[in-house]
Design a binder for these strands. Structure first.
Lengths: 283, 283
DNA sequence: AGCCTTCTGTGGTCCGACCACAGGAGCACG
DNA sequence: CGTGCTCCTGTGGTCGGACCACAGAAGGCT
């Protein structure tokens, strides 16, 4: 059993007693490694900042090859769960980091590239999600201003994160710089929208927004030439941004929601981004 | 150069001329492979249903080892972009599939496990996103009923997908089965909520909802014992579900949104799921 | 005491080998 | 001539061993 040159569907490995969910049979070796890490994560034995065991040791422990362990770690790395570094010392090795934004963006970006996510769907998703986030933000802000009364459902926006709104405003100031290239402007714009989500203090919403934005960044850039007038458009966007922030600060959820929807829809409609990627769809 | 036993930061490989975005330097070999596939995906040279080149050939083409290629493919597989199969014939090999749901769920689930996504944030995200989806659905339905007038922004819900609403209703009927175990009931419940998102015909929203649900499935199950009365709760959930569907069919976006929010918030509040995972947070 | 050299551990990469598998080609037989 | 079986081939899956680059840590020298 020691040097078993196991083929595809062999050696159930009998090491991991399957935590609780029989979801995946883990027939493949790399999956064993992946699930092992997930289980340890779930059990709280592995937390952000902790080191994963060295690849060689992990391989020995699980009875799989280092290659398989590496494949699992690679997945975790792309998903933003671990960070790997060569060398020695406390900063080397595979370390749990749990930075969801990157992973989320990667998934969405790749699926847009692979035609699993039509650009139109991403745009529409923004139209559905972003206004809701803005409204959520506005409600939270209104509640915070009125007093620290605690409603248990969907009201928690810690004041600490509220500084993101200020950061968002700072971005708006930066966007007022006269001779800004479209690419630069849109980069700031992207950061503004993500900062808005960040202001909710919700990691999931933030990562989702980041993913949505990143996944179509390329298409947004490509569509700039479609605009009738970059000058007019950017001026309008700047103005709309201010209005959105004001609505949120005023605690007017309905207004905030409507403004965001109009803002996002307006830009995409004007830049005709949806049609921009319709290359050779007819067949 | 042929048998160059390249170390970590060596051999820029000079093969891929960097498509257009200098985002990642691709210093690592596996990243070269991953970006190569992404570029081909983006260029439309690779579409769902197509085969990836055999691993050995891809390795040779890119000037990297098969191991590195495999790591890239592994990532694509976990992300739901390709499906691999052994053997020969048209069904074997790595095939582009673009099924985002699985990948999305994996990312979210792992990040919840890795404490990058607090359960409370996932719950809150549902509270923000789901009502918005329901409202979107209700508006689309009202619009479809009134007539085929086309508003360009956020109104597109093809009638074909509308059948998902019927499928959702069928799930509701299934949930009326008397002696349903909580696990079975909640599985149907999960499918109902995903079916709702599906009814929007939006792949991104669907995948996101699936991810949100899947990522906390375990916690939802765990929290069932916290309920004062499973019987009363399940009865209420069933009733609320019907109400939600009715509101959507009636085209009342405000009502649909409010009902969904109350539904989701009510359950999570009653099951105290957020506190359920607060194991040893104080330190 | 401080600096420099060496050692060690770690990820990164590559190579060559073998296994299991599923079609497909080709042959033998009816 | 058609049918069925057998062998071949291509493909992913896995393994083990090797070497490189790197960054601390340990230890010795000045």
């Amino acid at each position: 059993m020691t040097t078993q040159q196991a083929g595809a569907a062999a050696t159930p490995q009998a090491g991991t007693p399957a935590p609780m969910q029989p979801a995946a049979p883990a027939s493949r070796a790399w999956r064993i490694a992946l699930e092992h890490v997930e289980a340890r994560l779930l059990a709280g034995e592995l937390r952000p900042g902790d080191h994963l065991p060295p690849e060689r040791q992990l391989a020995a422990d699980l009875g799989v090859s280092r290659s398989s362990v590496r494949e699992a770690i690679r997945v975790l790395e792309v998903l933003g769960l671990v960070r790997t570094a060569t060398g020695s010392g406390p900063n080397a090795g595979a370390i749990i980091v749990a930075s969801p934004d990157g992973g989320m963006s990667a998934v969405m970006r790749l699926h847009v590239a692979g035609h699993g996510f039509p650009v139109a769907d991403v745009v529409e998703a923004r139209l559905v999600v972003e206004p809701a986030i803005a409204a959520h933000l506005a409600r939270a802000h209104a509640r915070n201003r009125r007093g620290p009364e605690q409603t248990d459902a969907g009201a928690r926006v810690d004041p600490g994160h509220m500084s993101s709104l200020h950061r968002a405003s700072a971005l708006l100031d930066a966007m007022d710089t006269p001779d800004l290239e479209p690419a630069e402007f849109l980069a700031l714009d992207a950061r503004f929208h993500v900062a808005l989500a960040e202001a909710s203090g919700n990691t999931v919403l933030t990562a989702t927004m980041a993913g949505l934005r990143d996944s179509i960044e390329g298409y947004v850039l490509q569509a700039v030439p479609n605009l009738p007038s970059w000058w007019a458009t950017s001026a309008r966007l700047r103005s709309e941004h201010r209005g959105i922030v004001e609505a949120i600060l005023a605690g007017d959820d309905t207004d905030a929601s409507r403004r965001v929807h109009a803002h996002v829809a307006g830009y995409y409609s004007e830049s005709r981004i949806t049609q921009a990627q319709e290359h050779a769809t007819g067949s």
